[in-house]
Design a protein around this nucleic acid. Structure first.
Lengths: 155, 155
DNA sequence: ACTGAAACGAGTCTTGG
DNA sequence: CCAAGACTCGTTTCAGT
């Protein structure tokens, strides 16, 4: 019973875009009775389609003027080395995303910092100090063309 | 008056993690009177620190089994070519993020798709069909170590 | 900035069609 | 799956300290 109909997907899309919309208003938008929407909503949370809600903050206004991606290569590619590195990553709040990838390097990291000076310190004191890090390549973002778009839910 | 005190930052952090918390409960968590929190909340929205709210969805449960990063190089690096490409990106819902970067390539793209077959079609029919695209390198994500962490707000 | 009170609106639960 | 009610709780606004 994890099949979604068109209405479910429309609910999910609306909630991605406006996570604080009231049950009553969303029901009206979709032409549903509020109780039906309430049922569907709770089901979507219970089944794990919705994992939570969050405020979107403006990084620049909060002093994070710099977005940087870093490609990281480890010196050993053993399961143990991966786990050590992953744990260090999870403890670093500056790291917003980190993914193990297949290809020319091992991890791709996304981080937001105040400026280049802050990044230099982060690179030297945090990232290069992590276990197993052999090589990094830094890509500073010049322009954010698209940022955190909604998951497409074919309606 | 765009300075944030410790209380403002705690509010923002709580709302990042739980965007649907009620005013009354958040006030209680932070030891504030509900009306004070309500005032601060509205001020944070009005000043642009909070840009919106959204539901977090589980990509895998929604059929997006594959996360891919793609490095894109354009054949011309003129302002006009950049703008053409950026517009095409904004029209492609599969592209969740796209950033212009400085370094060995021009754009870094983040996309979620069902599987490798879907990605092959996306690469051929969408990405390579975009204006000015000369070269792409694909990095499929093996493991999502950290995903969409909250912006760190030193409390 | 905090407090208190009152009016309004929304969510929840239950019953029923 | 939808409708209608009663009840509870949160929000909002107003006043005052």
């Amino acid at each position: 019973m994890t099949e979604l109909d068109k209405t479910d997907r429309r609910i999910l899309m609306e909630l991605q875009l406006d996570g604080r919309v009231s049950n009553a208003e969303l029901a009206q938008r979709l032409g549903l009775p509020p109780t039906s929407l309430s049922d569907r909503f709770k089901r979507l949370v219970r089944q794990g389609f919705i994992t939570g809600f969050g405020a979107r903050l403006d990084p620049h206004q909060l002093g994070y003027g710099l977005l940087v991606f870093v490609e990281v290569t480890l010196d050993k590619t053993t399961p143990d080395a991966f786990e050590m590195f992953a744990q260090a990553v999870r403890r670093a709040p500056e790291i917003l995303e980190c993914h193990m990838v297949g290809g020319g390097f091992d991890y791709l990291i996304k981080t937001r910092l105040a400026d280049m000076n802050t990044y230099r310190r982060f690179l030297g004191e945090v990232l290069l100090a992590m276990p197993g890090v052999k090589e990094t390549r830094t890509y500073a973002v010049i322009e954010e063309v698209k940022n955190d778009g909604p998951l497409p839910l074919m309606l």
